Structure formats: C-alpha cells, structure tokens
Amino acid sequence: MRLFFALWPTAPVAKALSDVAECCAQRLGGRATRTATIHMTLAFLGEQPREKLPEILAAARAVRMAPFDLSLDRLGGWRHHRLLWAGCQSAPAALQDLAAGLHARLRNSAAAFGAGDAERAKWHFFPHVTLVRKLPAQAFPLALPACQPLSWPCRSFVLVESRLSAAGAEYRLMDTFDCCG
C-alpha cells in the first residue's frame, strides 16, 4: 500500500483551490490537480506492507492536534519538480506542531520510517498544496497572478492510500483523526 497523511480540505476550499489550479494551468500550461485529489501532505510513507497498518494507525492516534485555520495566501513554483503550489506566508504553529508530532510518532514507532531511512531522517516540512503539475520548462520563471487569501479550517487529518495508474493517482481515505482540543 502506498500511504500518506494529509490535511483534506472541505468541499468549498477544494473547489476554490481547483479553480485557481485551472486558471493557472490555462495560463502557464501543465496539468491542474483534480478537485477530488487536492490536499496538503503532512507525512509521505510510500509503499508499506499491509501488516504495518495497525502500527501506523496507532502512531497517528497518539498525535495531538489543536484546531487551527490555515491561510493560503501565496503561490510559488519549483522548477525542478515542474509544479505550481499554494502555500502560506506564515504557517500556524499548530500546523508545524501537527506535522512534527506525526513525523516523530511514526519515526519513534518504526511504523513507517525505518532507522536506516536516511532520506526521511533529513525531513523538513514545507506546507503547500500542489495545484499544477508538469509545467512546461518555458513557464519558468513563473509570472504568478495575485493570490487572494483562502481560509482553510483544519479540524482533522487523514490517512490516504494512493493508487497510481495511467490516468493519475486515485486516493482512498482510510481513516480520519480529529482534533483533541
């Protein structure tokens, strides 16, 4: 199973981000992220054996999440990944705490991050939502439109299974972990 933890937007937030993605893809090229797959990854676990699922779920249930509102008020892009993203000028401390807590629980439980996983040991959380993939090389440097701030209420996080196909990734929400405070 290919797994990741994420913030999953409400339908209005997903629609608003999808609209921005479509507009930018028309303007810059590339492929807009589908409304149904818009999310903010908190921890990518990659391929995991099914027998690790109970340990992964237990690690996530031990994470404490305070409710917070995220303001997506910035667009940016990465030439090396050929993508456009939405992010925040200043990430709330509760978001950073959630991502760090989740990562620490997973690493400490060895549920998903093995001790020899050097790449994940260098982990750094950069909060962003991918809006457009496969931007053409000539789109860089990006001439980005102004970004109207979008408020995203965050009251839970989810575990998602990602299934890759020729049509793109299909996501299945496997479990939801609600705020505790």
Results as ranks from 00 to 15, higher is better:
Leu106Tyr: 02
Arg34Gln: 06
Glu161Val: 08
Leu3Trp: 06
Tyr171Arg: 08
Pro92Thr: 11
Ala166Arg: 15
Ala16Tyr: 03
Ala62Pro: 02
Val158Tyr: 10
Arg27Leu: 07
Met174Ala: 05
Gln96Thr: 15
Leu106Pro: 05
Arg155Ile: 02
Val20Asp: 09
Arg31Asp: 05
Met65His: 02
Arg107Asn: 00
Ala121Ile: 00
Gly168Cys: 11
Arg82Cys: 09
Val132Asp: 05
Leu164Ala: 14
Cys23Arg: 12
Trp78Gln: 05
Ala43Trp: 04
Arg172Tyr: 12
Leu150Gly: 03
Ala62Asn: 09
Asp73Thr: 09
Gln148Tyr: 00
Arg31Trp: 04
Asp73Gly: 07
Ala58Met: 07
Thr176Lys: 06
Asp97Ser: 15
Gly76Met: 10
Phe126His: 14
Trp123Asn: 03
Leu28Glu: 12
Thr176Phe: 05
Phe140Ile: 12
Leu164Ile: 13
Ile38Pro: 04
His124Gly: 13
Phe68Trp: 04
Ala86Lys: 02
Asp19Ile: 07
Thr37His: 06
Thr35Ile: 06
Arg2Val: 00
Phe113Met: 06
Ala146Met: 12
Ala66Arg: 11
Trp123His: 07
His39Thr: 00
Phe44Pro: 10
Phe5His: 05
Lys122Asp: 07
Ala14Pro: 06
Gly30Glu: 00
Ala58Gly: 07
Leu150His: 02
Leu95Pro: 02
Leu159Gly: 00
Cys180Gly: 14
Ala112Ser: 15
Ala43Gln: 10
Thr41Gly: 03
Arg79Lys: 13
Trp152Asn: 03
Gly30Pro: 02
Ala59Pro: 01
Gly114Cys: 05
Phe113Trp: 01
Trp85Met: 08
Ala166Gly: 10
Leu131Ser: 09
Arg107Val: 03
Thr41Ser: 14
Ala169Lys: 06
Ala169Gly: 03
Ala167Pro: 01
Asp175His: 11
Ala146Asn: 12
Met1Glu: 00
Leu3Asp: 06
Leu75Val: 02
Leu144Ser: 07
Pro54Cys: 13
Ala111Glu: 06
